[in-house]
Design a protein around this nucleic acid. Structure first.
Length: 453
RNA sequence: GGCUCCAUCGACUAAUGGAUAGGUCACCACCCUUUCACGGUGGCAGUACGGGUUCGAAUCCCGUUGGAGUCACCA
């Protein structure tokens, strides 16, 4: 929509009252805002075509269902769930693979007649309104992504339009709302492709102009089945907690569509400018977390130290650490940015910045600590004590001078030093790390390590 | 099972009917190096299969195979 200067309208499709979830609407809106989707019209912002919540529009749907009833394009049905089950069982046993509503042999206004129908309704008998699908015709529509699609009417069920609770089904509500809300393009997942003929039939029955259809390829799990909240942890809320917005948007935008051959990183604005519906792929795309993490890393590198510090601060608080100086946190986060994919990993990756209770990696210790190393390093503590400006360059110079005096390579010193000060085999530049840990703590850690090991 | 959609490296993808099928993630090797990374260089790896049309097919057509979606008083 943004590419063509269109509006973003949010419509809440809450016609299934049995699946009503508290706060679902609020969460959905928050999630869309996070993803950078700006809503022009919707339940919160209002607009000419409101209300934007389907459960508040039932009168409209009933009105149009009645219109279909009077033109013979819909009818009442009184069948119970048990009767429908029996029908499907019967059909399954006779003709194979044909479970559609058998309107000629069920209890509906077609078989019962007008009078009996009126009587049943007057008696308060539960009933639905079904669409009358014409016999033996081809229903064709044009899909922007898939080209012409044709489905025979014998494959289309007499879809329920109004349920016995008086609420419409998606099919009716969607067509009526799209018409009155001026929707020009229906862009949705491929799972809707096979029910699109029902919608076409409704547009025809009302005499309304049909919108353009575009059925997007599905997002798939690793096993290539439809990605759903049920079989993977793909709730966008979870991504919202973990990933940078732009990284997530960039990754998802490139699933099923790609503007060029040799570039991966695009801003939201570039995506909007470049997007072309008819260039969208037809085949489903596997949602590859590893590549998402790569995007995350790329976007993490673009953050300012302040922004990294902000995230780190929140993360440390969430993990129950005491508070630290923000400027210092900025520096810590910035110096570790190339070693992690997520700022949230920092407390576990480099705990030595936030606690004095160091844990020493056994393997690293075994490899880089022995009596020789101890003898080599011990005098260095005093050398460091003399360093007045506890910063990367002076520390580097002091260490270099010490190594030259001893006639050894820097390498001999660096690993034991890292071991004593961090306990970890990996991390950022040693002298930069020492600068951030601070002189007092560094000297203390070294002496106590030497005393104990 | 019926119907519909789909098919390029393991994954995401690029390629008016015309170059050695290009790029990215992942993986591997090497380089850089003060650890771990980042980065750099290189490598592995693909047009599902069989026909047809064409001077020429990843591309168009047919078939096969495979995968997915759908078949609710859910959306």
């Amino acid at each position: 929509a943004r590419h063509h200067g269109g509006k973003m309208i949010l419509r809440i499709e809450d016609t299934d009252r049995t699946r009503f979830v508290e706060n679902a609407q609020e969460n959905l809106i928050k999630m869309l805002e996070w993803a950078g989707v700006e809503i022009d019209e919707g339940p919160s912002q209002g607009g000419e075509a409101g209300p934007y919540v389907q459960s508040e529009r039932t009168e409209l749907y009933v009105k149009y269902a009645n219109e279909l009833l009077s033109s013979g394009k819909a009818y009442y049905a009184f069948d119970t769930a048990e009767e429908l089950d029996a029908m499907r069982k019967r059909l399954q046993e006779s003709k194979q693979g044909d479970y559609r509503y058998d309107r000629a042999n069920m209890r509906n206004s077609l078989t019962l007649g007008e009078e009996k129908t009126k009587e049943l309704i007057a008696n308060g008998e539960a009933h639905v309104i079904r669409m009358y699908v014409p016999e033996n015709t081809d229903i064709s529509f044009k899909d922007i992504i898939r080209g012409d699609v044709t489905i025979h009417s014998s494959e289309v069920d007499d879809q329920i339009l109004i349920k016995s609770d008086g609420f419409p089904t998606y099919h009716l509500a969607n067509v009526v709302d799209d018409h009155f809300m001026g929707i020009t393009h229906v862009i949705r997942g491929e799972e809707w492709l096979s029910s699109t003929p029902k919608h076409c039939l409704l547009y025809q029955a009302f005499g309304w102009e049909q919108p353009e259809f575009a059925h997007l390829p599905l997002l798939l799990n690793k096993n290539k089945t439809k990605l759903s909240k049920r079989d993977g942890s793909v709730a966008v809320e979870e991504f919202k907690e973990k990933y940078l917005r732009d990284a997530f948007v960039n990754f998802v935008a490139l699933l099923g569509w790609n503007p060029s051959a040799d570039r991966e990183i695009y801003s939201m604005q570039e995506l909007i400018d470049l997007f072309q519906l008819d260039k969208v792929n037809k085949a489903g795309a596997v949602f590859d977390m590893q590549k998402l993490d790569w995007f995350q890393f790329q976007y993490l590198q673009k953050l300012s130290p302040e922004e990294m510090g902000d995230i780190l601060k929140v993360e440390l608080e969430a993990q129950g650490y005491p508070s630290f100086d923000k400027e210092w946190l900025n520096k810590v986060a910035y110096c570790l940015r190339e070693r992690v994919h997520f700022i949230a990993e920092i407390p576990a990756f480099a705990p030595y910045f936030f606690t004095d209770n160091l844990e020493f990696e056994d393997e690293f210790m075994a490899k880089h600590w022995n009596e020789d190393k101890k003898a080599l390093i011990t005098p260095l503590v005093d050398e460091y004590r003399k360093v007045s400006e506890w910063k990367h360059d002076p520390l580097n110079a002091a260490t270099k001078a010490y190594c030259e005096a001893k006639g050894i390579k820097m390498k001999e010193i660096m690993n034991p030093l890292r071991l004593m000060l961090t306990g970890k085999s990996g991390g950022a530049s040693m002298f930069g790390t020492m600068e951030l840990i601070g002189k007092d703590k560094c000297l203390e850690r070294m002496s106590s390590f030497i005393a104990q090991r």
